[in-house]
Design a protein around this nucleic acid. Sequence first.
RNA 1: GGCCCCGUAGCUCAGUGGAUAGAGCAGCUGCCUUCUAAGCAGCUGGCCGCAGGUUCGAGUCCUGCCGGGGUCACCA
Length: 654
Amino acid sequence: MNIIESIQEGVIRAVKGLYGAEIGPADITMSATRKEFEGDYTVVTFPFTRFARKKPDEIAEEMGQHLVREVAYVQKFNVIKGFLNLSLSDAFWRRFLEEICRNEQFGMQPPNGHKVLVEYSSPNTNKPLHLGHIRNILLGWSTSCILEAAGYEVARVQVINDRGIAICKSMLAWEKYANGATPGSTGIKSDHFVGDYYVMFEQKFQKEYQDWQKSDAGQAQLQEWLGTNEARRAEKELAQKREKALKELEGKVAAGELPPGSSLREEDFSPGKFFFKNFKDEYFNQHSKLGAEARAMLRRWEEGDEATVALWRRMNDWVYEGFNETYEKLGVRFDKLYFESETYLLGKDMIEKGLEEGVFYRKDDGSAWADLTGAKLDHKAVLRSDGTSLYITQDLGTAHLRYQDFGVEKMVYVVADEQNYHFQVLFELLRRLKEPYADGLYHLAYGMVDLPTGKMKSREGTVVDADDLIAEVVEEARKNSLERDTLAGLSAEEQQTIINQIGLAALKFFIIKVHPRKRMTFDPKESVDLQGQTGPYVQNAYVRVQSVLRKGGGQSLSAAADYDKLESQEREILSQLYAFPELIRTAAEEYDPSSIANYCYELAKAFHRFYHDYSILSAETQAARAFRLQLSQAVANVLKMGMKLLGIDMPERM
RNA sequence: GGCCCCGUAGCUCAGUGGAUAGAGCAGCUGCCUUCUAAGCAGCUGGCCGCAGGUUCGAGUCCUGCCGGGGUCACCA
């Protein structure tokens, strides 16, 4: 039993003995004592006034005496405004420190016999990975590590969207314009190589579309639309929008944010532009030559045309090669890949079963639906009238397949929050189908990543590429390291390893420290910061310990047993360490890596302060020296484990 | 419009219903002859979106409103 439970039990007995009331642990409000007061743990006594019929201070006083008498290691107490602050004995903390120094795996929970699957990354194969994927990957990886630390057996998987019109665009552009060029022949990273042809397709298509807009056919289409009611509505809305924008602009000019004489871009409010923007998909499907070619290619792929499938395989393999490089740089891996080309037909059996069981119903046209109005959702199509699968059908089948593959009781889907509705529907359907894992489903929905300039938009070229970003943070770490010149004496290879660790720590920590649910602003300038609330700050605390240990470690630390009169900073650090196991449990329960990041920062901060204020190697006594060495060692160990859960490695020097 | 998420310092973010709401960045000041200054300390900066309610106690829970985002396809 840990000390917190002991105290709770003591409080329960005290309440019963003193006031004759029965309470449970949940009725007790307990927390670590705030820094400005003396004590280690605080019990709030206000809730007890109801049955004690006494003032909070009196209750606290009585209870404090009771706890000191009855609970081992509770040594003394003080009362401030109804808050009962308890101090544990030095012996308690010394024993705790000894215990964690013996246990390298302190905080890691023993296997709990449960299996969980984590799906993350899940890219398309037509473009390289970008900043959004990085958040996804870091969340997925750290969540899976945290679940492992909490005792789960974890399977890491990704779904790869390797089929559909998008990859056909890349294929078509490559066929038409590449003249047989390959990643090897051009020296371009292979996923970027494929992505470049996707971009090229879009550019050629855009050019074609613009030419068409000016053509008789295009103008005729526009004229036809301009006569409709829809057009009149649109014109009205555009006029309103224009007015609003004009007001905003005038406000900004008045505030000096924009130069005088600034004006609106009138074309933004022209009905013609509005029309052609919305007509784009229809143009692609109905009129475009390139669109027709891409669709023909998709059809050939679906028919299994040999040459098309071979090209498809070749280009996708290039993409995987590039992805794997990026995954390796980020230090993540997967146990299994699910390719949509292999799973997109799955799920129909489940629909059949569901139809029999009345989970779904059929419309006259043959399509299958689920009535989810009871779950405050809606009617949802699960099979097309021609009998083919939909996105949701495929996900039903894939979930079932994964259960067969891994026998997991829980599945975590790391997917952006724009798909919240989809997962609500998916989980509800799996519950109704009585899938055995249906109660263990969790959508780890994370907010999109914005740039200081606004949303990332691939069409406007504001997407931050994953590889570029990694290179940038590592370069920043390299420059800083050179200035500091602390790595002299190490081989070039060792130096590079450390610089990579520092750069990636900055990037990863910057992203993980924000709660997943929140939309986040990613400022590239701040992400390469190496000072303050950052990954390298935490690494530096670890490095300082290693440096101390190199100089003064190796001797017996048994003298630590004689250390008494712990400093309040030492107690504070110990109390933080004490919270580590519980932190892992709650982080796993809540699927929240950000709590680990913030914990590591707080612990590093406490250590940096301690390191500054007290001498470790030249402490006043042998006992103090031994104790502080142990304490430093314990801090380093916990920081290393904590950061490892975030996918961040600790360098031995920096 | 329905549903979901967010709103805390100039900026980026913490904050299990408990004490005087915290960090980092930015700005200003100090501290390297001492275990690595990627550090430490200080100053400046808050109607915790607004209004009600529940509670001994609300940034935290409930309701309404305002603002931002997402989503509501036989697309994925």
